[in-house]
Nucleic acid binder design. Structure first.
Lengths: 345, 345
DNA sequence: TGTTAGCACTCTCGTTAGATGAGTGCTAAC
DNA sequence: GTTAGCACTCATCTAACGAGAGTGCTAACA
């Protein structure tokens, strides 16, 4: 069986109406709402075909039809109006991302809020993966007697500060000398590497300042550990928006989904991809059980060509794909431009 | 009418049973479950008295009784077993708070998770209020051509870093000289003060390095602005736990509450207090409409005697007060001890 | 051969009516 | 002061029923 023009128009009508209303739609309603020039009976026949093709389905015998995952996929790939963005939305995105990008955290928070507001869906942002980030430099600044501020700069531009304990008799300046050696050795290596191979090399070079080195290395512990932990958090924005979707009127469903969202690991799997450009994952295309009723639109952030993070939107399978895709696309392009302007160290 | 011993025992039974079961409890059930040595009829008479005293109420005519806000208050103040903590819980708190307290953010995240896990309620943590925090020192570190890392230390021990734009021809070292002047002038002043009065004083002193100063001040902008904004975020842990409480089986109720939680301002009002020690706010005792069905147990964190933050638990009015109070109390004591050990600069 | 009208059938949803059961308040007896 | 008994109230559960929306099939039509 082929998808002729009329079938396409009918499928398009079903998907669009269902996206808007969340109600199964019947032949009669289609005939009334969309001017296809044929009677409900004809549409019924066509719908029967579409069902056989696996593009639509019936929740129960005497209800209208709703799109299947494959139906949404067909719609996104072939039938949808090309995603395009309103001017106000563009302006909003420009404005929100223009404000203070002094801290990476700031960017993430802002963007997350922005996306969920614009789409009325849940936004999902995965920051830079600590595990893979390369070390660039470290500095020590005085803090209090016995303590110092350790500032760590990574090659992806991220700057972190930690308060570390040093001996009472040690000055931050002194420590900085040790740090300089570490900087020379560690620059461009992942923290993982450091632990694996560089440590003893550094050790020998610095043997005369052994006790200082010991403490410096102890200080790096927290960062090195962070490396392994699943500590590259995922930030959710507008998780509540989900409650407004009729498909989540069932409390248990919501609970399950939110629980899955709380476990960072699940989401990370869902978002992880090396793919450039926009990615659309519809319903069952997600492998994960919990997200079978959801779709994810995501795109990657890059810094110096490296994966820096992922920005996405999570919504019910029945979502306004055109709009969501346009918004994610525009936002990530914008962020990538900003990241590019912060040239590599 | 007086609260004699039997009345107290009955009220205690009602509160405890209702906390455990979330079901209104009737005279017959009390007589069966709790061994008071009197018949249901007698208990009915006493319950009638308790209702007249405003300590219990009936959801509808033919249901059992539930505690009123005043009833909970009476229970907490006079009837409750003194809050005390199991050893496992103590150990858990010790262990979780012992791990890396290198970053204030870390402490907040950890504690938030910990509290919500231990109580199965929602934890609420308010970090240091930027607006009130006093400036201590700033440093500049090299980052990339045209940019520097600005590290700001506040008197409450918080360290922040920001990436700031500087002229292409300016070195971070050069900037540090300006910073030294700023440090001398601004130490111990709130950022608010700086804007109001110190700026022109600083200006005159540094007039020869005007262009550098201009940029340094521009850099402080983000922090100064942050000051005014409601940017001292509130961190929620286990907001989902609420969904498990039978009182929130109604989706609209949950939505309303979560919406109120999302607006930081509301919660800030709820938590703000100068009071030392444990604070219990029951149901209608909260002024805010949205939280009439909730109780909040909170306590303040202090650093050098200054209010540093607030740690609390938010749950339905029907919560296990003894347990929640014990946990909040122990946790904040522990955190305060840790903060004290990080002596003031 | 494709399209349409007609019709019987299915299934969900909202309403209504009873039956059930937990709990109360009152009265009178102990 | 305490208790047993009893009539009454009210939420909740269940079954039954009708309305409404939609389908699939058949037969007629162009």
């Amino acid at each position: 069986m082929q998808m002729d023009d009329r079938k396409k128009r009918i499928l398009r009508a079903i998907v669009q109406d269902y996206i808007a209303s969340a109600e199964p739609i019947g032949s009669r309603t289609i005939a009334r709402k969309f001017d296809l020039g044929v009677s409900p009976a004809t549409i019924r026949n066509e719908m029967s075909d579409l069902e056989e093709l696996g593009l639509i389905e019936q929740p129960h015998t005497s209800a209208g039809r709703i799109p299947s995952d494959a139906g949404y996929r067909y719609y996104v790939d072939f039938l949808m109006d090309p995603p395009c963005l309103g001017d106000q939305e563009k302006v909003l995105i420009e404005r929100e991302t223009a404000r203070r990008i002094h801290e990476i955290q700031e960017v993430i928070n802002q963007t997350s809020k922005l996306l969920s507001q614009l789409t009325s869906l849940t936004s999902v942002i995965m920051g830079p993966q600590n595990g893979k980030s390369l070390f660039s430099k470290m500095y020590f600044l005085p803090y209090q007697p016995g303590q110092a501020i350790m500032v760590v700069v990574k090659e992806n531009g991220v700057v972190e500060n930690h308060i570390v304990d040093i001996g009472e008799d040690v000055e931050a300046e002194e420590l900085q000398k040790v740090a300089d050696v570490l900087n020379r050795k560690m620059q461009g290596h992942s923290l993982h590497d450091v632990r694996k191979s560089l440590l003893h090399e550094i050790y020998s070079e610095l043997s005369r300042q052994r006790h200082l080195l010991d403490s410096a290395l102890a200080m790096l512990e927290p960062i090195i550990n962070e490396d392994d932990s699943d500590h590259d958090h995922i930030y959710l924005g507008g998780a509540l928006n989900m409650l407004n979707q009729p498909e989540f009127r069932d409390l248990d469903k919501v609970k399950g989904l939110l629980k899955a969202l709380e476990e960072d690991g699940r989401l990370k799997k869902l978002l992880s991809t090396e793919q450039h450009g926009l990615r659309v994952s519809i319903g069952g295309e997600n492998r994960l059980e919990e997200f079978q009723d959801c779709s994810v639109i995501s795109a990657s952030l890059r810094y110096n060509g490296e994966l820096f993070g992922v920005v996405g939107i999570l919504g019910p399978t029945r979502m306004d794909y055109a709009k969501a895709m346009a918004i994610v696309d525009y936002t990530t392009r914008r962020l990538n431009r900003i990241l590019r302007n912060r040239r590599g160290p």
